[in-house]
Amino acid sequence: MTLSNSNSIFVENLEKKFGDFTAVNKITFSVKKGEIFGFLGANGSGKSTTIRMLCGIITPTSGTGSVAGHDIVTEPEEIKHSIGYMSQKFSLYEDLTPYENLRFYLGVYSVPPSEWEERIDWVLNITRLREEKNRLTKELPPGRPQRLPLGCSLLHKPDVLFLDEPTSGVDPITRQHFWNFIQQLAREGITVFVTTHYMDEARFCQRIVMINEGSIVASGSPAEIIAAACPGKPQADLNDAFITLMTRTDN
């Protein structure tokens, strides 16, 4: 377990089969503590299955891995305490107020009630929802409710934050805010594991792994990936690299 000291996420030969179908085919990668790590792939490439295994929701068919120092096979419950998860779909209670949503998740993460006020205060600050904390979430002005899930996923001070396409359907200004904040979190030592379809956002990642049909097809910094996928094209960007890698059949 020497690796887990510097690596926040570490998987080796991780595999998941559903019957005869191999969703994730023996992948190996690691993510350093405090790193923003991009996990990119087309729809159905095995991205979600990998995230579900890392979050302790489904058990891998074979292979090993650890998240925040906990084994993904034997310690899924401990993992759930150390991670925050934000899904692409809005998944909080719209018939509760932001305050009630936060309080519910504090309880679910069994944060001691003595710390609740302070945590709620902090989240209302970063989400800029203080004025609206007692209005029903579904009645908030457009754009506001989307700030809440990120706050909720940070309530219990997780070591690792999983963001599953966090910015789909979000306007450019809010997206900029969002990435500034994510970078700030990373500087504070939180590991950020993010999937996205927007290649211009993948720039914010220090390291990227691209996955296609369950196998890793590229990994490295954005610049390294572009150079390897599109050799001899200095003007190529991540988009070009992504398309090249996802459509290559001889892999």
């Binding site: 929701i57 759930k80 899904s87 909080l92 209670y93 069994s110 999983f162």
Partner: peptide
């Protein structure tokens, strides 16, 4: 239906 179950599954709630 609301998708909140997905969020509950990643919490320590048993």
């Amino acid at each position: 239906e609301a998708g909140t179950m997905e969020q509950l599954i990643v919490t320590p709630l048993k």
